[in-house]
Nucleic acid binder design. Structure first.
Length: 470
RNA sequence: GGCGUCGUACCCAAGUGGCUAAGGGAGCAGUCUGCAAAACUGCCAUGCAUCGGUUCGAAUCCGAUCGACGCCUCCA
């Protein structure tokens, strides 16, 4: 098996991937909170995880990919009035929180399917595993890692000496309550809620009984509880966006390791943000770009996938329509070139020749070097332009690389003569005559007529022409 | 205030100590052509934010400066 290197946030270094169990890889990815549509920045994270998963599969691993769906609301802040994102979404749309969750989960599945993101092996909804979450809080409670306040059960981070190791947190330097009203019942600024109580005077749409009182799970417990349920108390890979490093994943490690007494995860991988001119894309700002927005503007979802393929997952990518245009053009040219090669060599290729194998090896090396897809894409371009390779080899390589790229390159079909109506052919022949007679005015008129009827007339060498449906 | 990341051509971007600094887009030129479109071919960074240092050798390591961004509620 080829060596695969991944950048591990824990060590801030590329490390060789060694699975816990030979030939298998367990992977947990933090999924969406289904209170609204995903914006294109959110989708970048799932795209990065898709590349990771495809690279693991390419290397022959049997991948178990688990993703949570956060369908339980988390409070907007510690001191808010009990309204959360889910309930806000529900009241905004006049539906129940359960309906909201169902609707946006479906929208999310559609979005990732359009981007050719392979669906996870397991989708797990937070509300389906409340018992597991309560059990985990109990476990922490029994081991003395918790304390109770008026509004919930908290994790006492001072009892977990390694707290913050993932984020290299300088806890002293954190500004308590910098952007949030701070609960003064918390013993330490980094302590976080494991279980929150429902406000006494209010009936929440989502609340459950627990040994500590009616309420709902804290902000981080679902991921630890569900990842352990599906992948075991110690598993290979956990990923998410970079924003998860200092809080969410830091807290997950604390909870999980305090409860199980084992190392939680071997490799932590984080995807960078997509940013706009004015900075990070966010939903709270109101307007945000969805995949559908791009489609409405005439882009295909795979144009956006190509855009994401152009850079490395650990680098910020700046979104602009100018850059998306560049991606669309590049993708278009790529497909065009493959179509031409396929048209020239319609026969099925059998296996790669020596030179083509070198390209394959280079590609494999690139993607195994911490998912260097930008370099992989360049290798594809080089191969397609290498005249020393046979057409059959080039087609085979494109199909091979597409296992990672996911650009539907294998679906490109050779140009086949389409059925052109007699009427159009007659018009084209008339135009040819006009051209020969150097009556260009008439020739242009005829070409326009053909265009109006939905066909494009292209001139070829020697006065020949080609008709294509528009 | 603390912590973290980044700065490679007009745009996106790979390269993180040693071969002419990948690739894509845009642009320009050419082939073809009455014109157009498409396609193909060629050109496009003696330099990698700036200034110092280490080294036989630096885009790559170190330091300083400037600039951009992220995190310290929730968030991909």
């Amino acid at each position: 098996m080829e060596k695969l290197f991944l950048f591990n946030t824990l060590s801030r270094a590329k490390e060789e991937f060694i699975p816990l169990e030979t030939g298998k890889a367990g992977m947990y990815c933090c999924g969406p909170t289904v209170y609204n549509f995903a914006h294109i920045g959110n989708l970048r994270a799932y795209f990065f995880e898709d590349i990771l998963k495809r690279v693991l599969l390419y290397n022959g691993y049997d991948v178990k990919h688990v993703m949570n769906i956060t369908d339980v609301g988390h409070l907007v802040s510690d001191d808010d009035e009990g309204e959360d994102k889910m309930e806000k979404g529900a009241s905004r749309e006049g539906k129940s929180v359960w309906e909201i969750a169902e609707f946006y989960t479906e929208a999310f599945r559609n979005d990732i399917a359009m981007l050719n993101i392979l669906p996870p092996t397991v989708y797990c909804k937070a509300t389906d595993f409340i018992k597991e979450q309560i059990d985990m809080v109990k476990c922490l409670d029994d081991k003395g890692f918790t304390y109770k306040t008026n509004d919930g059960v908290y994790f006492d981070t001072q009892k977990f000496p390694e707290y913050g190791k993932l984020a290299l947190l300088d806890i002293e330097g954190l500004e308590e309550g910098k952007r949030i009203a701070f609960s003064d019942e918390k013993k330490h600024k980094t302590d976080f809620a494991l279980w929150k109580f429902s406000p006494i005077d209010q009936k929440r749409q989502m609340e459950w009984e627990s040994p500590w009182g009616t309420g709902f799970p804290g902000w981080h417990i679902e991921c630890s509880a569900m990842s352990i349920k599906f992948l075991g108390s110690h598993f290979d890979i956990h990923c998410g966006g970079v924003d998860h490093i200092p809080i969410h994943h830091t807290n997950e490690i604390a909870q999980a390791e305090a409860c199980t007494g084992e190392k939680f995860v071997n490799y932590w991988l984080h995807g960078e943000f997509l940013i706009e001119e004015k900075g990070k894309m966010s939903k709270s700002a109101g307007e945000f770009l969805r995949l559908k927005t791009l489609i409405d503007k005439g882009y295909s979802p795979l144009d956006y996938r190509y855009f994401l393929l152009m850079t490395h997952y650990r680098k910020k990518i700046k979104f602009s329509f100018e850059n998306l245009d560049a991606a669309r053009n590049g993708y278009h040219n790529l497909k065009n070139r493959i179509k031409e090669i396929k048209s020239a060599a319609p026969q099925e290729a059998k296996s790669l020749s020596g030179d083509a194998l070198k390209y394959k090896a280079k590609f494999h090396e690139s993607i195994n070097d911490d998912l260097n897809i930008g370099e992989g894409l360049a290798i594809l371009w080089d191969a397609l332009k290498d005249s020393a390779l046979s057409d059959a080899d080039r087609v085979l390589l494109a199909n091979e690389f597409d296992k990672i790229l996911g650009l539907d390159l294998n679906k490109i079909e050779a140009e086949k003569p389409s059925e052109i109506p007699e009427e159009i052919i007659a018009l084209a022949n008339k135009r040819k005559e006009a051209k020969t007679a150097r009556d260009f005015k008439l020739a242009d008129e005829l070409r326009q007529q053909i265009k109006d009827k939905g066909y494009e007339l292209l001139d070829k060498k020697g006065g020949e022409f080609e008709i294509k449906p528009l």
